[in-house]
Each structure stands twice: as structure tokens, then as C-alpha cells.
């Protein structure tokens, strides 16, 4: 940003008049706020005794899940776009040829280091097949660092756990789609 950038609006700090400079009004204001909170409902949540439920689970960015396709297979096509987008470099994928006739490529191994992740949601944004999503599940604990590297099975199990509560956040193309019928006809 340059100082002469036309998009930058420079503001002057307003001058305080004598009354304001006494600071009394500000102090009274402040005391008012304190007093109000002393009598209204308490804001502090006694976590973890009182667990927190995100108001809109579809907007919360918590632990990842790997979605499954209609046949229950991992939906991810191992394109590495999430790993490319991830600013924390915490996604590790090993791709392979898919064992299924209607799919070409799939992740043989998929791991996310949940400790290194900054929960920015870039992976979700990057995924062309909506295979990776963040859930509203947030209270992760583990006793070792290794335990916090979630592998494919674990990420799929997060999907199984959350799929009823949280529907797919987005819906777009499916690369796993079978080739259109006419293509198959042509083959014959």
C-alpha cells in the first residue's frame, strides 16, 4: 500500500473539547456498562461443563472430514489441490490408481496434521469434488502428536459421525461420475 493510493482514506483524529478532556463522561459511561452487566444474564460460559454448540454448524471451521460418495467410497480423487492450497502444509497425500472401474485416481493414503492446521478452510475451498470439508467438531484432544495426525480412516469416520448432523456444505461437479452413456455406446 502506497501513501498516495487513491483507495486509502486518511482520517484525522477528532480534537477533544474541554468537556471531553475531563474524562468524566467516559468514566461514567464505563461504570454504566459494568453496572449493566452486573445485573443482566451472565455471558461467561463454564466450558467444558457447559459445552458450546456453534450457532450455524455449516459455517464453523473445525475438524476435517473426508466425504464419501454414493457407494460409500472416499470421494476424494487425490488431485492434491487442497495440499497445494493449504498454507500450513499439513496435508499429506499419496495417490494411486483407483481399484474401482469407474474411477481413475484415489488417495491411497491421506493424512492431515490437525495440530499444524490453522483451520482456515482453504482446503475445502480448493477441492473440486467437495470431498474435504470442515465440520463443527472442535474439541480435539490427544496425548501425543502422532495421534493428532488424522489418517484417511479417521477422517472418513468423522464424516460418518457428522453426516446426519451436517449436510454437505457445497454441491458441484462429481469427477467420479460414470462417463455419459453415449460415450459407452460409441465404444461398442
Amino acid at each position: 500500500m502506497k501513501p498516495d493510493d487513491p483507495d486509502v482514506i486518511w482520517l484525522e483524529e477528532p480534537k477533544l473539547n474541554l468537556f471531553e478532556r475531563l474524562y468524566l463522561p467516559a468514566i461514567i459511561d464505563g461504570l454504566g456498562v459494568t453496572g449493566r452487566h452486573a445485573v443482566t444474564k451472565k455471558m461467561t460460559r463454564q466450558y467444558p461443563d457447559e459445552p458450546y454448540q456453534p450457532a450455524d454448524p455449516l459455517k464453523y471451521r473445525g475438524v476435517h472430514r473426508l466425504n464419501r460418495d454414493e457407494q460409500g467410497r472416499v470421494k476424494c480423487v487425490a488431485c492434491f489441490l487442497c495440499a497445494t492450497a493449504c498454507p500450513a502444509h499439513c496435508i499429506d497425500i499419496v495417490a494411486a490408481e483407483a481399484p474401482w472401474p469407474d474411477r481413475e485416481k484415489y488417495p491411497e493414503h491421506f493424512a492431515i496434521d490437525e495440530l499444524r492446521c490453522i483451520y482456515c478452510g482453504m482446503c475445502e475451498e480448493a477441492c473440486p469434488v467437495d470431498a474435504i470439508e470442515l465440520t463443527s467438531f472442535y474439541d480435539l484432544t490427544g496425548l501425543t502428536r502422532e495421534e493428532m495426525v488424522f489418517d484417511k480412516e479417521k477422517l472418513l469416520s468423522v464424516f460418518d459421525m457428522t453426516k446426519d448432523r451436517e449436510p454437505l456444505r457445497t454441491a458441484g461437479f462429481r469427477l467420479s461420475q460414470v462417463p455419459p452413456e453415449e460415450k459407452e455406446e460409441e465404444e461398442k
Binding site: R174, L175, Q177, V178, K183, E187
Partner: peptide
Amino acid sequence: PAEPFTSRR
């Protein structure tokens, strides 16, 4: 129309 699918191989 864009209809991504797997290429014949």
C-alpha cells in the same frame, strides 16, 4: 455444457 467425467483409458 461442462460434464467432467473420467476419460476412457
